[in-house]
Design a protein around this nucleic acid. Sequence first.
DNA 1: AGGCCGATATTCT
DNA 2: GAATATCGGCCTT
Length: 205
Amino acid sequence: MIDLSQPALDVAPLLLGAVISHTVVLDDGSRAEVRIRLTEVEAYMGPDDPASHAFRGPTPRTAVMFGPPSHLYVYLSYGIHRCVNVVCSPDGRASAVLLRAGEVVSGEDLARRRRSGAARQVPDRRLACGPGNLGQALGAGLSDSGAVLWQSEGLCPPPEAATWRLEPPGSPTPCSRSRRVGISHNAEKLWRFTIPDDPTVSRPR
DNA sequence: AGGCCGATATTCT
DNA sequence: GAATATCGGCCTT
C-alpha cells in the first residue's frame, strides 16, 4: 500500500512499477478493464511549484487537488487530451503526480480501440506513451476527476461501479530523475521520474 | 527523422 | 487576448 498522503515528490518514485487500472461496467453487466504498469511520472508541488495547476490556489478545475489524497485529478490538456494525476498530500494541501507513460499489461485490445485514425496502429509500447495517450488508454474522462483511487487494503467500492485501482510494485523499481516535459516555469527541477531504459517511456519531441 | 500546425478547455492578464 | 503539464497529420529534407 502506497502512502499517498505524502508530498507528490515523495510519492512519485513509489509509483514507478505500480499498476493503475480502470474497470468499466458494460451495458450487459460485464466488465472491461485496462491495466497499466507506470514507467514515467512527474511530481507537481502545488503552492511551491509555479508549474503546478494548483500554484495560484484552488479553481473549479483544480479544487480536487486541495482535497484528500487517493483521488484522481483529471484535466484537459490543450482542450483535448485527458491527463490523469494522483492527488497527494493531506486534505487541505495540494500536490499531485502526473502519470505520463506506462506499459499496458492487460486490456490492450480495449486500449487500442480507444485510439482513432492511424494512431490505432501504433506498436504496443506506444499505447500509453505520453500523458494524453495514457489517459486515453485508460478511458479517463473529466467526470473521473475526483474519483477514488482504491488500494487493495481497507474499504472497497460497490461491485457494480466503475473503479480505479492502484497495485503497488512487486519488487523495488529502479528510477532515473530528469527535467519535467513541456513546462516553462520551475523547469530546472528534476521532478520527472522514469524507469531506466524502459521502451514505453516517452521521448522529447 | 524532423518541423510546423491546428484543435480547443481553462485560467490568467 | 495569451498561455498551456499534448498529440496526430501532413509537409519537407
